[in-house]
Design a protein around this nucleic acid. Structure first.
Lengths: 218, 218
DNA sequence: ACAAATTTTTAGTTTTATCTAAATTTTTAT
DNA sequence: ATAAAAATTTAGATAAAACTAAAAATTTGT
């Protein structure tokens, strides 16, 4: 199997965003199911082309242009996922593989028109944010939550990235993101969560609750 | 540039459908902007894999499975072109290059769902027919025209494949395929065509007329 | 701080695609 | 029918990607 520069850039992006942005040769090799020596070769090439910063034995990180390239790929991937689910009625859990191919189609105009066709979505079907054309993400959920004014006993609930089970749960209960959610019984949080959404009470299992961000006034 | 098996199969299909189906090494090389010796190598490979019949010095033709593969590619290409024009509002003359990439996406389910989403179109934006899933074309325009009953002085007009200028002309004059067209002055056919469409008279230049199929009662 | 373990790079090999140039086969023209 | 021209294949060269095994650098544990 022959891996493309874009495949490498994407992996470096995804591995790098957890830490300080520097990724090891072996980590890349493991993720891509290739050999470290092959990674060294490719990383040299990417460095010569200006996509990564590379110092021997010291790992790789994306340059500004490398990051831009990665974000464009993420944007394309997630827009295509929205298309597959919303327009073609694919199930959520089947879109990744196809989007993995579609993201490599080269046409800026196509992406712009797709974005418009989908009415400029901000998240993909898994709840992950879609970077804007210039590579900016919407503020993260955590940041947004911190900006919402909540009262003395207030609670703010957000949904973590990549939580299909919880999104399915919301869907089933006719709850859309942005609805006001009030936690009634904070005490029982370990087992289940008793909350009031849109005026009706619902119990949430702790497993699903683990997919939530909570911000509670001190 | 590294050419794929699919690229070769497509070219053999398109070159072969004019003649008896057998295509020469040089014709392929010319079309693909590669060298005849490279074609020989690839054709051997395709032959081993069962996509083509190949006898040294005697040219290549597609096997049944090769033809099926080619038709699937044509189907995908044309469906994507419909999508680009009808859903994303691309201009007709810009879709080919993008469809050339999209046709290589591998997912049978995607093609089925795209077909449904587009409401099972029978022609692409250039008027070329879209093969069905099992590889069958609708009857050709010529065949259809021969089945239409026309009177003593009747004329039947069809649009040839790949004639964007004429389609643009039709569009501009609010003429849809299937409208009845009556040729008034057959005599002047060499320079321009004087026809009556939907009750109003129109002159067609001979250049545009060259994109028409005509069937005139003897 | 240092030896052992781990990680990463280097050197050289293999595989694959494509090319050039020469050899072979087929076609064309008289 | 045969010589010349054209088309096609073969043989060998080049380039790129990925591998194996050995060498070098870094990190870890005491």
């Amino acid at each position: 199997m022959t891996l493309s520069e874009e495949d490498y850039i994407k992996v470096i992006y995804h591995l790098g965003k957890n830490e300080n942005g520097t990724v090891s040769t072996n980590a890349i090799a493991d993720r891509m199911e290739t050999k470290p020596s092959s990674v060294t070769d490719m990383v040299r090439k990417l460095s010569e082309k200006g996509f990564v910063n590379y110092k021997k034995y010291k790992g790789v990180s994306l340059t500004e242009i490398g990051t831009k390239t990665a974000l464009t790929l993420v944007r394309k991937h997630r827009l295509w996922e929205v298309f597959l689910v919303e327009k073609l009625n694919f199930p959520w859990d089947e879109v990744h593989e196809v989007a993995e191919q579609l993201e490599h189609i080269k046409s800026e105009k196509l992406v712009d028109k797709l974005d418009k066709h989908l009415d400029y979505p901000e998240v993909d079907p898994h709840g992950d944010p879609i970077p804007s054309k210039n590579g900016a993400f919407k503020k993260s959920i955590k940041k947004l939550m911190n900006e919402i004014p909540i009262g003395a006993n207030g609670v703010c609930v957000g949904v973590k990235d990549s939580s299909p089970p919880f999104l399915k749960f919301l869907d089933k209960n006719n709850i859309a993101l942005g609805d006001s959610i009030l936690i009634l019984d904070k005490e029982e949080f370990d087992e289940s969560l008793h909350i009031r959404i849109n005026g009706s009470d619902i119990h949430i299992s702790s497993q699903i609750a683990s997919n939530l961000y909570l911000r509670i006034t001190e």
